[in-house]
Amino acid sequence: MRWILFLLALGTGFAHALDYHLQPRQIADGVWLLEGSTDNFAAENGGNIVNIGFIETADGVVVIDTGPSRRYGEALRQSIEQTTGKPVLRVLLTHHHPDHVLGNQAFAGVPIAALPETTRLLAEQGDAMAENMYRLVGDWMRGTEVVLPTEEVQEGTLEIGGTRLQLLALRGHTGADLAILDERTGVLFAGDILFYQRALTTPNSPGLDVWLADLDRLEAMPWKQIVPGHGPVTTDAAPFVQMRDYLGWLDGLLRQGAEQGAEMNELIRAPIPERFAQVNLSRYELIRSVSHLYPRYERNAMGRVDRQD
């Protein structure tokens, strides 16, 4: 009996520990941020490695991304209602990656909007990504299921509750990446087109050249403050500077590697420049990016050598 009580105590203690402790931070008039860590998915963080935001309008709230799990989404919705006292009008998803969309379940009854290609990618890859999240963060994910967007958005201006948002349809990170600028405050939600102080991820990238071109379009927006998908908020262009530098280095490493006949195992051990010492997880993400991207660079560097007769 004592054993059972002990196990029960352990069990409830553990369940109690699974709390994201979300503390929305106001970063501009009517704009709040929930800033995640710059670590990798782990049981210790419940997958809370991502920046989630919300914007208060006259009629209600616009939510930007829903987080890594059902549990996160529910805590998010609760903290939005506590903070603003207003209902959620609309969810906007920046892209289909699991840390940004697996909180969708908590927004039942609210229109969830995304680029059409984001919906297609989530339908195609969502279950496998959710399964992987269960493997990486465990119990935090309990009850989490993929919920697809219910509305489409396109590039252009979107007005919700009297608040004007400028939407930009980009491609560099996943092939469908939505960036959102709140016109009134100049807060730019860049999604994962910007990683700052955290190494960028490439599993769905159509190419680093595409991503670099996106940075020019995004930087030209009239922003005053930047919320990257991962990493700290800034009021200067530092995330753009770091992203260009990092993407340029990665592209050069892979291109030169392919031109000189480097093997994947040689590239994943390549030195990482000292100036990226502040960029968390750069070695880990280099190993992943070599796997994602190097085959394309290799094929471009090689030619047909088979006897064609």
């Binding site: 006949g261 030619g303 047909r304 088979d306």
Partner: peptide, 10 residues
């Protein structure tokens, strides 16, 4: 059976 290849001088 198509082969992509390249020789790298080292």
């Amino acid at each position: 059976g198509q082969v992509l290849g390249k020789r790298f001088e080292r």
